[in-house]
Design a protein around this nucleic acid. Structure first.
Lengths: 239, 239
DNA sequence: CAGTGGTCTAGACCACGCC
DNA sequence: GCGTGGTCTAGACCACTGA
């Protein structure tokens, strides 16, 4: 076999190699990878070993396979991305698609906490976006997003911020968000946001702090949001 | 092959068969299943096909495999069960293990909403438990649990309610919770719970409504809890 | 029709647990 | 040493896609 005689099983080595190529942008989103046979031949392993690696990557939402066609880099479409990471529902109900209004965009130095969470050098520049999200035409969530400029150069100069930022991240900046960590608490609505959500100041709201993780494992985005929960709930299934 | 000539792939048929056996209590928790070879011979398929089915069941937390020993029915130990489904953490911190104090147990007819959620005949009997959960010696969560008596006969007569109900469910009632659905909202703390949590009435608290799903797909438990979030947060990773 | 992924088999060898 | 699960291979056949 042409792979290094490491201590890891072959399929794991193949997985690491293919993931590295993916991270480095060797293949673009929605592009096909070489076929199983081609990869097996190139890497000097059997087709079954390549298959095991590819299937693991499919399980992690890195790839998609279509019988008769090929293996493709997973695409963060508006729908799939929102469906996976947008957890707001009507109680007992189906998934919802939010509308989004951009309120402000600014550039500033990162706070100490942000530097730590995003692994930045002190005083590195970040962009802060404030967005208001609507569910069924009602303003429900106000969201502050923080993005490091070294990851998203000049993102504050974008003139079209899409509904799902993750598609923009993937298409323009080569960032593929593969997982997010949410921390939820209840708190009193800060007075400055009250008018946006049509709620009284100090109304109980759900506050979510999210860290978004790129395919290479780096935390590349922080967000903090406040949501009224009279009509909608944060819904999650644990398995 | 001795399996029905259905339209499903073989490994799926094997998976269904083994899952059915598991649901029916053919093997008890922490008991070993027959070896791959034995199952393959019994079912008239190859070892690789059995392996694929077993690995899928492992991925769904139904089984555990130990190299050199065998394949075992997954056990809901206090730790593993809590680790999977108990989502409270210190902000940015590690998982916590709660202490639990049972406040009351009572038997009553199910409400209409409960009948619908738990698929019960009208006016079926349920047990309602009220529990106070402590994190780091502080009372943080007050939880109302509703269990149908047809699933958990005489559970209100248990004299030792463990920290994790799920272990009790598995050991005494043959119920294996494989997934839960949580709906979270912020609300004002009901006055009747204020003293338990050492908070003022109407303080903003995180309310969680949980449906717990048995291995056979049935919703077998509902719970509703209120939690103060000054020191602790509900933390979840989406992938 | 050729090329792709999906399923299934049979068999080899390895790593681990236990007697 | 034996039985278990874990890895890897080689090859057959099927199902789907698109030229």
């Amino acid at each position: 076999m042409s792979l290094s005689a490491g201590f890891q099983p072959l399929y794991k080595q193949v997985y690491d190699l293919l993931t590295t190529r993916l991270v480095e942008g060797h293949w673009k989103p929605s592009e096909p990878l070489p076929s199983e046979m081609a990869l097996a031949k190139e890497l000097g392993v059997s087709q079954g070993t390549v298959r095991k690696s590819l299937n693991q990557m499919v399980a992690e939402n890195l790839l998609q396979r279509r019988q008769g066609k090929g293996t493709y880099v997973a695409e963060h479409t508006q729908e799939s991305s929102l469906f996976r990471f947008f957890r707001w529902r009507e109680p007992g109900g189906d998934s919802l698609v939010p509308e989004t209004q951009l309120l402000s965009v600014s550039r500033r130095a990162a706070t100490k906490a942000e530097c730590q969470a995003l692994v930045l050098t002190p005083k590195a520049k970040v962009v802060e976006m404030l967005r208001l999200r609507f569910l069924q035409e009602q303003p429900v969530i106000i969201e502050k997003v923080v993005q490091p400029l070294d990851v998203f150069p000049d993102i504050d100069k974008e003139d079209l911020i899409p509904n799902s930022l993750y598609t923009l991240y993937q298409e323009k900046y080569g960032i593929s968000i593969v997982s997010v960590k949410d921390e939820l608490r209840a708190c009193a609505l800060p007075a400055k946001y009250a008018k946006h959500l049509n709620l009284e100041a100090a109304a109980p709201v759900l506050m979510t702090e999210r860290s978004s993780i790129n395919i290479d494992g780096r935390v590349v985005e922080l967000s903090q949001s406040y949501a009224g929960t009279d009509k909608f709930v944060y819904s999650v299934q644990l398995k």
